[in-house]
């Protein structure tokens, strides 16, 4: 698979380390009500869709950026690649 890095252009997926579902960006608040259940869902439960999947890839053998890659898990087609930083900011992770 080739991942079209937003800064570096097309790179072999072998340069990356895969982490999993991009919902891992949304770490729950450990002090909120129901934090134990929220952390259980966060750490263990997965949507695991057959089809479009947003996932985190880390460019370990490159510029060490985290990417959010939207990929089809049935065809392996990569539909969109964004810097995880941009996605996290857009989704309110960083203030």
């Amino acid at each position: 698979m080739l991942i079209n890095h937003p800064i570096l252009g097309p790179r072999d997926a072998q340069e990356f380390v895969y982490l999993g579902d991009a919902n891992l960006l949304h770490r729950p608040d450990g002090l909120a009500e129901g934090a134990i259940a929220a952390f259980h869902d966060y750490a263990y439960q997965r949507g695991n869709p057959a089809g479009e999947h947003r996932e985190l890839w880390y460019h370990e053998q490159g510029d060490r950026s985290w990417l959010v890659v939207t990929r089809n898990t049935v065809t392996h087609e990569i539909l969109k690649v964004e810097l995880a930083r941009d996605v996290a900011r857009r989704e309110g992770r960083s203030r």
């Binding site: 698979m1 997926a13 895969y18 579902d21 695991n48 999947h53 996932e55 990929r71 898990t73 392996h76």
Partner: peptide, 9 residues
């Protein structure tokens, strides 16, 4: 990586 493709790379 997550896959339902029944084929690898």
């Amino acid at each position: 990586y997550n896959s339902y493709a029944q084929r690898g790379n």
